[in-house]
Computed example of a mutant assay.
Amino acid sequence: MFTGIVEELGEVTGVEHLGDASRFRLRGPVVTEGAKHGDSIAVNGVCLTVVECAGDEFTADVMAETLHRSSLGALTVGSRVNLERPTAVGARLGGHIVQGHVDGTGEILERKPSEHWEIVKISLPADLARYVVEKGSITVDGISLTVVDAGPDFFTVSLIPTTLALTTLGLKQPGEAVNLEVDVVAKYVERLLGAREETK
């Protein structure tokens, strides 16, 4: 489990296409400290398993399902990525509960800079819109954010200078894709209420 508090802005240093999968090599001095084979690291919000770790780099395999559902397939050598290690039991939950299971992708539609923050408008797939509410939580490229406005096919978030400086959202421009993970609590509530209706 993750919290959506990005630990560092890493970099893709290698991409190997394997037909129905890809192997990525990524640099991240913070997240590789103490990392070993089998550990999990979130890359732009996608929970990946460490295959090998050497120095400040690690490799991870990404299967076709993940490449199709997320924006990882668009990564190339030099791409910057948000990196986060799983939260430790007993640690502070700085963001919200993030599984690292991307629900879909959105597209940055608009950026409106202000003096001290920036409003970013992001498209929202129709099947995810019901889970996104004003002042609720959403994960964008692995970043735990609060929804400002929630429309039928978009939402907006307000980014503070720290987020702009230390994550990919400070770099991405309109037209670029981002990974989205909606609040898992909303999905469980929907499923439980649906099951209760079916038994009436």
Rank of each mutant, 00 (worst) to 15 (best):
L171F: 06
E16Q: 14
D20R: 09
V148G: 05
L128I: 09
L75H: 06
I138A: 02
T162R: 07
I138E: 01
T162G: 00
L26D: 11
E65D: 13
T167W: 05
P161R: 01
A64V: 13
V31N: 04
A150D: 05
S70N: 09
L171A: 10
R69L: 12
V50M: 04
L171R: 10
V77Q: 13
H101Y: 05
S79I: 09
L75C: 13
N179T: 03
V62W: 06
N44Y: 02
V50P: 04
M63Y: 12
V133M: 06
A195R: 13
S123G: 12
V77G: 11
L171K: 09
T139I: 11
D103L: 04
V81C: 12
S158C: 15
Q99R: 07
D183C: 03
D149S: 05
F2L: 04
D39Y: 07
V185L: 15
E176P: 05
G14K: 14
V89C: 14
C53N: 09
V157K: 00
K200Q: 14
D61A: 12
T139C: 15
I119K: 06
T49A: 08
D141M: 06
E198Q: 14
W117K: 02
V98F: 00
E7S: 05
E197L: 15
L169V: 02
T87K: 11
V77H: 09
E118T: 12
P86Q: 10
R196L: 15
E134F: 03
D56Q: 12
G95D: 10
T76R: 15
V46G: 03
R130N: 02
V102F: 01
E52F: 10
K135D: 13
I160S: 04
A165F: 07
E8I: 06
V147F: 04
L26T: 14
L193I: 11
A35H: 10
G10V: 04
T105S: 06
H37A: 14
S137K: 02
A64Y: 12
H37Q: 14
G78F: 08
A186R: 08
L159R: 00
R85L: 12
L93W: 06
R27L: 12
T49F: 02
C47K: 13
V120A: 01
C47E: 12
Q173T: 13
T168Y: 08
D153G: 13
F154A: 13
A64E: 15
L164S: 08
V148K: 04
G73Q: 07
G19M: 07
R196D: 06
V12P: 07
V184G: 04
R69H: 08
E181T: 06
T163E: 09
F58A: 09
P161K: 00
G14L: 08
E65R: 05
G28S: 13
D103H: 08
T76Q: 14
T162M: 09
G38Q: 10
A21E: 11
V102E: 03
V140W: 01
R196P: 00
G4W: 05
V133L: 09
L128P: 07
E197D: 14
F154P: 04
N179K: 02
V120W: 00
A64H: 14
H17S: 08
E110N: 10
E16W: 08
A165M: 12
S114C: 11
L18S: 01
R80S: 13
R69C: 11
K112G: 00
P125Y: 09
T32W: 01
E197W: 13
L83Y: 03
T49R: 07
E190S: 08
A195P: 00
G136C: 10
T199K: 14
H37M: 08
D56S: 15
H116M: 10
I138K: 00
